[in-house]
Simulated assay, not measured.
Amino acid sequence: MSKEFIKTTEQASNYDHLEAMSIAEVVEHINTEDKKVALAVEKVLPKIEDLISKIVEQLQNGGRLFYIGAGTSGRLGILDASECPPTFGVSAELVQGIIAGGDTAIRNAVENAEDNLLQGWEDLKSHQISSKDVVVGIAASGTTPYVIQALEKCNEHQIPTGCITCNKNSPLANTAQFPIEVIVGPEFVTGSSRMKAGTAQKMVLNMISTTTMIQLGRIKGNRMVDMQLSNQKLIERGTKMIQEATGENQEISKEALLKFGNVRKAIQYLQENDKENK
């Protein structure tokens, strides 16, 4: 007997007559609802750990991580993937976000894109997806056809699958091998899953990418030693990291950073030089 599927993301808000509320009342109530999100995520930490363990295993063996979703969920996946190269210095190929409707859908809604049963798998195939990779479907409702069918095809081709959803016992969770179900309850604005559900998905994505990159050796101590030096702020941050790690002054630290273009390599260079001079 299948478990009951209740779409809590579509249930009526706990608040009514929103238009009659003052600005102070609206923000207070939204904040009250947002406080529930971290607690909901806490309940599924073991499930998040299971998925991350599989992702790390796949990436250590030469695979890639793909997020796939529609609408807000798809955009969140793209956001998380796009932050990995500048933050951790990895290739843009390692973590990739795919959204129903393609790049146009990042900024604009694409009609019926999420209802296409075949396109999700086609989009993954365009990246030469293989059993070395891992695919995480993201859908607040857990009912998005584009995402569900993509994961079903992945399962058929022995590609590990996970998901992040905000309804219990959804079709998506029943499809994914490593499901994460963060039950945040009704939204402040009924059905607006860009709110609590979106926040929950972002929190889980932060955990997935950050923990994975730590496990892959992309953090030293608590520092982003492989970050891309794409602006002056990051050069200054990198210089400070090198100073703290080596005890060198700002001028020498910055010179080494600019020479190698990488915090980790600059630290290694200065530490090796220091050993040779002792």
Score class of each variant (00 low, 15 high):
T165I: 09
L172D: 00
M227K: 06
K54V: 10
N169T: 14
A113Q: 01
D274T: 13
N262M: 13
F5V: 00
T161M: 02
K240V: 12
Q228R: 15
M195A: 11
N108E: 02
Q158G: 09
F178D: 00
G185Y: 04
G69Y: 14
E19N: 13
V27W: 14
D226W: 06
A105C: 06
M213C: 10
D274I: 14
I48A: 03
K54C: 13
L79P: 06
S230V: 09
L59W: 04
Q58G: 07
V134L: 15
L205E: 00
L229K: 14
S2V: 05
E181I: 06
N174Q: 09
N249K: 08
M241Q: 13
A92L: 07
M213H: 11
L79M: 15
M224K: 07
G63S: 10
A139K: 10
I164G: 02
S253F: 13
S13N: 02
M21I: 01
D115E: 08
A70L: 01
T8R: 07
R264Y: 05
Q215V: 12
A200F: 06
L172A: 02
A197R: 12
V182Y: 07
S130N: 04
P46V: 03
G217S: 08
S13D: 06
A81Y: 11
N277W: 09
K153W: 14
C166A: 01
A176G: 01
Q215P: 01
I99W: 02
N273A: 05
Y146V: 00
K168I: 08
Q58D: 07
E122F: 12
E93H: 09
H127P: 01
T175N: 10
G97V: 11
A140N: 00
R237F: 08
V95C: 02
T246I: 08
E49K: 12
G221E: 08
D115R: 03
G221V: 11
N155V: 03
A113M: 02
V27Q: 13
I55R: 05
P186W: 15
D115W: 00
G101H: 00
C163K: 04
V44T: 08
G191R: 05
I6W: 04
Y269G: 03
T8K: 10
